[in-house]
Design a protein around this nucleic acid. Sequence first.
DNA 1: GATGAATGAGAGTTCATTCAT
DNA 2: TATGAATGAACTCTCATTCAT
Lengths: 205, 205, 205, 205
Amino acid sequence: MTTRGRIDKRQAILEGAFTVFAREGYAQACVQEIAREAGVAKPTVYNHMTDKATLFRNALEAAARTILEQRIAALEPLAAPTGDLRATLEEVAHVLLRLHTDGRSCALRRLLYSEVTHFPDILDIVKESGPDRLTQALADRLARLALAGRLRATDPDLAAEQFLALLLGPLEARTQLGTRQLEDSQLRVMAVAAVDAFVRAWGAR
Amino acid sequence: MTTRGRIDKRQAILEGAFTVFAREGYAQACVQEIAREAGVAKPTVYNHMTDKATLFRNALEAAARTILEQRIAALEPLAAPTGDLRATLEEVAHVLLRLHTDGRSCALRRLLYSEVTHFPDILDIVKESGPDRLTQALADRLARLALAGRLRATDPDLAAEQFLALLLGPLEARTQLGTRQLEDSQLRVMAVAAVDAFVRAWGAR
Amino acid sequence: MTTRGRIDKRQAILEGAFTVFAREGYAQACVQEIAREAGVAKPTVYNHMTDKATLFRNALEAAARTILEQRIAALEPLAAPTGDLRATLEEVAHVLLRLHTDGRSCALRRLLYSEVTHFPDILDIVKESGPDRLTQALADRLARLALAGRLRATDPDLAAEQFLALLLGPLEARTQLGTRQLEDSQLRVMAVAAVDAFVRAWGAR
Amino acid sequence: MTTRGRIDKRQAILEGAFTVFAREGYAQACVQEIAREAGVAKPTVYNHMTDKATLFRNALEAAARTILEQRIAALEPLAAPTGDLRATLEEVAHVLLRLHTDGRSCALRRLLYSEVTHFPDILDIVKESGPDRLTQALADRLARLALAGRLRATDPDLAAEQFLALLLGPLEARTQLGTRQLEDSQLRVMAVAAVDAFVRAWGAR
DNA sequence: GATGAATGAGAGTTCATTCAT
DNA sequence: TATGAATGAACTCTCATTCAT
């Protein structure tokens, strides 16, 4: 029970930190504000995390883990693609787009990009809870589909990479670097376009 | 001559600023260091630019302009695609990859991403000297090719968008968010793979 | 037993406190570290001592008392100076030097000097357990010797003061303000030199 | 002229620093207050001195130099001791006592003692501008007097050391570790007593 | 126009001290 | 009684920005 409060507070700090870092960036974010956001006093933050830097890393890691889990879960329909493959792909694509355009998701990308030179070790986050993992998971699914003869059976890793590229690449411009929200209908259109191209390029001949 | 010196100094300041901002990020960069990098005294920086913020915007704008020009120029071969279309596309793709993985280019992306929330007006840079312009220019070229019957004649804007997505999307993972340099041979492989998929998806039937 | 444990803990706290204060000085010493040194938790320190300041005073007092006792004991041989007076003085002088150059002794001096302006009441420690008391005790012994005709019978207080001055004064320079340990042989030489001058100045004509 | 202001300010900072350090001790002194004392803004202090530590060292050094000069000057009468040697010694002794009991002098001693463990390099100050130098200078004078047959011609270094010990040793107790001012008449008495013993111990037989 | 010097404002971090258990 | 956790108050140091020359 004693421990409970502790864990809650740690959680609150990590979430507050991510929120503030996301809003302000690493350098502009001030620990004072993070503490306020988490509803604790400044030294409490330091009792849990040694450093502003450590706080940053941990907050990023926690956020990345959560986000990755959602994305992996979004691939589920591909595990047993009943019926129309194209429809399944579109469904998955649509959900991925929605997840990818979510505020926290965009913020995480921004933070990773902007601080990767100051915190080279956040690359581990990218490797372990980032896009690499998603590509792998997708490649696994596509490999099954290839075996089942429903996709060109050459290189599932490349296929996964290109599926995600076709899907997410256009986002950057459309969302203005992640600052603008898109309508769900727009996302649907983008999903269809990406899947369309993907099927032309990778569908079973 | 006086005027000349002034212009030179302005140029030096803008370049020094971009260098330092690229290395440190907006907030961590300090005007002192920018001045040192540019070889002038700190107040001289303020004589040319009112603000650290203004300095940032101008430095970004100048860098973006230069970078965009190079990219647009790289599309040149597509204007008159002598002979093999696939080969031309691969050549263009290869050059684009090289430009896109260049240090300054990556730094610019990082800066845009990290500061877009604090400087919403840098979106103008993206629109006027960024990827949007490149996509447009490429779409123009592809439209010509479509008219010439060498590409599927449906939607050149979408084609351009997907060409760039297939080409540049995989870069993020391969360069570790732009922190790792790639061998030219690797770039060649990536160019071939992207063009291969593009041709399958968009080649004339 | 409980009481015993309490007393032990109090003792441990006082000793830990002196150790840390000696190493760090009053202001730099942090209660956390004192608690660690004493093997207790931080609030336990506050259960025994109201204040960091109180803790400081008590630790100093305890240390001073111990140190004074040793010094007074060192004067013992002068109570019944069998045989050669000069030899007895040299012996006493030697032991005093050794005590005076001891680490804890030097630390105590340092602490008294540095904090006397912030804790005027530690002057009581000096008066009750410090050099003043030693001078008095020595004066008592010298008075007896004067009565016995073995010393100039004028002013035993002055004699005691000058004996200690001749003995300890040179220490400051030789030990580099108490930071360097001296060889026992060096101490012997210093004792002899001090006694030599003392006897010339205060020996019975 | 530009430089003039700079030098003045540096001087003011060093003096303010010594004042505050003397009053508060190293750790308790805060740069803010030093700046106020010096009549400048806090960052100005940092423009002149890199560090609080550096500031401390420099302030100590400057104060030590000034103080040493005064003490050395006080030995002047011994250079050509016209007439009564005892009277000359008493005069010198008296002045030395006055210098030694001066507020700044006491403060310097306190600071040296209290911080020597944190700043081992301030031992250089002691060597170059502290008591060691004074002892040397005095030894030089006494050697001359020994040559002139007016002092026991054995060991002028030891003689100087013991003269100062007899003179300054009793100060510690009398001034309560340097916190109490003494009347000039008391100083006179102490000077006479010290010289008296010194002459008995070191006077030409 | 260019610069050395100065400053107001603010950030990270530490610490003595107090609750609640 | 002893302790893990939390906090208010300071303190060092940095930086964008402005004068005065």
